[in-house]
Design a protein around this nucleic acid. Structure first.
Lengths: 223, 223
DNA sequence: TCTATAAATGACCGCCGAGTCACTTAATCT
DNA sequence: AGATTAAGTGACTCGGCGGTCATTTATAGA
């Protein structure tokens, strides 16, 4: 009786349709936690509830798995932010605030933040990954920020700056937030407050961009 | 004749005083080229003209070797800059310009820039490395920047800002320059101009920090 | 010249993880 | 039910590297 109950449970199931996605999700976790070189495919497989050899039925090798993970998680997330941005117009200041806030909330504050950090970490060892990230993500972010800067300058809302270099200055604190979270947070007395970090950045940024220094313009505000 | 000439050359020499420094220099190169985990001590030793076991006479293990490398290069460099900084007083603006320029010239433009990138890359796998770097390097940088910000605010030279968070904003573009160089430079049509990058940063930064917006203050200058 | 010593070494160990393969077995088809 | 297929697996190989140790040897000093 109890014997038959035990035997009625198969040792494993065939789920060829669900395996790839489950493996990708497990792989994302492990890659983000350990980095590329230190990620063990044994761990990826076990987190997906599968043996290591099974993983090799779906992905040719470690590098192909990694590429699949990056392609699967990176592009969709970034496009969502870009699409939401296009839907809500407004002044250049509001656009920039919305853009940076969205980034902080959707990426810096989520496990997805592991991706940029991971790409940076492994870029020199795996140039094709860096190239992909540069083409698909960085170029898009660059275009968006430069667009807002030029638009603001044309409207007289911003001072005219060296946009080809300034866009990286605008992005830099966001990247730093990600890096801090993943690399140094554990060693600080209190965790970094992303909200406050972003406010400090916007405060510096807008007071630098503002063409006039009337008292009413001094404080940046969301509305 | 030729035989005795060969035999007269000892198989190796005892150079206990010179070994440590030579090993550190070789180690810096290998760590920067390969990253921490992928750096092979065999290669470090051979570059220093020595066997692997010899390396272990001078450094307890891989981690201690790495710490010694960082102390010997980055930490000592920071202390030098700090000392030079104290020697040349001036306004807070000049101090900050000198500080950031020194960083760009001494680190971003040298192989030393590989160290911060390496630490970021491997922090999660080797927390001891991150902790060490945070204590020995980041704390020094933090203190220097916050010091200048507060001094400038006290002298009325800077606007009063949230220094506990603003210091990271000041540092962020420097970190980004390093990351760019090591991760994405190869995929851009032309290499990033650190000088121009720093100018864009300082332009944004000082116009954000300046308490007044008179025409003469608008342009930041080195003198 | 001889000796003491510590600098230097080659060979080795143990562990780890990517990738492989012969085999098992769940599910499907007839 | 029996045969077929392909999903899944455990056990294995192979190469690499951090770290150790017994031994060799350069060299300073008596």
């Amino acid at each position: 009786m109890s014997m038959s109950a035990v035997l009625s449970q198969p040792r494993w199931q065939r789920r060829a349709d669900a395996r790839p996605q489950e493996l990708l999700e497990a792989a994302l976790t492990v890659f983000v936690e350990r980095g590329y070189a230190a990620a063990r495919l044994e761990e990826v497989a076990s987190r997906a509830g599968v043996a290591k050899a099974t993983l090799y039925r779906y992905y040719e090798n470690k590098l192909e798995l990694f590429k699949a993970v990056v392609r699967n998680s990176l592009v969709s997330g970034f496009d969502e932010v870009a699409k939401a941005q296009a839907g809500e117009p407004g002044g250049a200041r509001e656009q920039l605030i919305r853009l940076l806030t969205a980034f902080v909330q959707r990426i810096a504050g989520s496990p997805l933040s592991g991706i940029p950090k991971l790409v940076i970490a492994e870029a020199s060892n795996f140039p094709e990954i860096a190239r992909f990230y540069h083409e698909e993500v960085i170029q898009r972010g660059r275009a968006m920020v430069i667009g807002v800067l030029r638009q603001g300058a044309a409207a007289g809302e911003f001072r005219s700056v060296d946009a080809d270099y300034a866009w990286r200055i605008v992005i830099a604190p966001l990247l730093l937030a990600i890096i801090w979270k993943h690399s140094f947070q554990a060693f600080e007395p209190e965790p970094m407050d992303f909200e406050r970090h972003l406010e400090a950045h916007l405060d510096l940024l807008f007071n630098g961009l503002a063409p006039s220094r009337n008292e009413e313009d001094r404080q940046w505000t969301r509305n």
